Simulated assay, not measured.
Amino acid sequence: MLESSSVLLFIVFVLLFLLLLFVVLVRKNGTAALIWNEIIREKITNFIMNQSKEQRILNFVLQNAVRGDPCSVMDTIDKYCSQKEWAMNVGCEKGLILDKTVEEIKPSVVLELGTYCGYSAIRIARLLKAGARLLTVEFNPEFAAIAKQMIEFAGVQDKVNILEGPSEEIIPQLKKKYEVDTLDFVFLDHWKDRYSPDTILLQECNLLRKGSVLLADNVICPGAPEFLKYIRNNPSFQCTNYPAHLEYMEVQDAMEKAVFLG
């Protein structure tokens, strides 16, 4: 009996040690970080609380942010995701790169691929000039519903239109169904394996004009190698890389800006 208890304690000790080691690795390793936050930790918390992480983020915003204040909503999301639960928003560090790009372009028509909880949509919309509009595409209905509430709470709903569905189906509909002539700015932050095919699709649908700007997030972590290969070797684009970190972590990441030359 005593020997059995000792073996059990040893197993528990080893498991706790491995868990601690994994958590330490998470801070420096992008793959480990994503596995820990998106698979292990999130699934356990969702099961215990019987509620999605995205709903928890929304509830925190509704309880702590100032209604009608986009910056307050963004700061509250950043606070939650840096202190409580990691989430795949663009975050405050890379958000400044996004801000600068929007301020330089002063776009009238913006397309965002990957709405998630609405953080980057709010971030972009607060900088848009009067009459400008943002079309943001989200495949997941639950995320789209959360984003709708978040965007309305931030008070930027008059500039944002959430389009539900896969990007490869919505992009070809933009001209006729959503009356888009060409896009001034495209923010790519959805499935990384869709970055390259959707960029090609935007060109095939004649949605890019000379001077249209694409900005892609997470090109290092989790990474979009096919997109980088395509965009950097395409004479129709002029590229700039912005080194940064994975949102709310010390893991290396980057954003890639591509100006369409026509």
Rank of each mutant, 00 (worst) to 15 (best):
E226W: 05
N241Q: 12
D158I: 02
N50H: 06
D193T: 07
A258D: 04
N140T: 10
D69E: 12
V23N: 10
V23T: 13
K94E: 05
R123M: 08
C221H: 09
P141E: 15
P243Y: 04
Q51R: 10
I200L: 12
A87K: 03
T182P: 02
F60M: 02
Q149C: 13
Y119P: 00
I40L: 15
E42V: 12
F17G: 14
L188Y: 08
V61W: 00
A216H: 03
A244L: 06
V7M: 03
L261W: 05
M249V: 10
L58E: 05
K176L: 15
C92F: 10
L183C: 05
Q238P: 04
G95L: 03
L188A: 06
L2V: 06
L16S: 08
I170V: 13
L215P: 00
L98F: 04
V213I: 15
K176Q: 15
P107T: 11
A254K: 12
R123F: 01
E152N: 13
E138G: 05
L25W: 12
F139K: 13
C81I: 02
N50G: 04
L163S: 09
L18F: 14
V156Y: 11
A145H: 08
L134G: 02
L214Y: 14
Q51D: 03
M255P: 03
L163C: 08
I162L: 05
S108F: 12
E169T: 14
W86K: 04
L183P: 01
I220Q: 04
N89P: 03
L163H: 05
D99V: 03
G68C: 02
F10R: 15
W36F: 14
R126K: 15
L16G: 06
V137A: 08
N140W: 01
W86E: 02
Q252F: 13
Q83W: 01
T76G: 01
D253L: 02
T45A: 04
N37T: 11
E112S: 11
E54D: 08
M49C: 07
T76I: 04
Q83G: 06
S120V: 00
P225I: 12
Q55I: 09
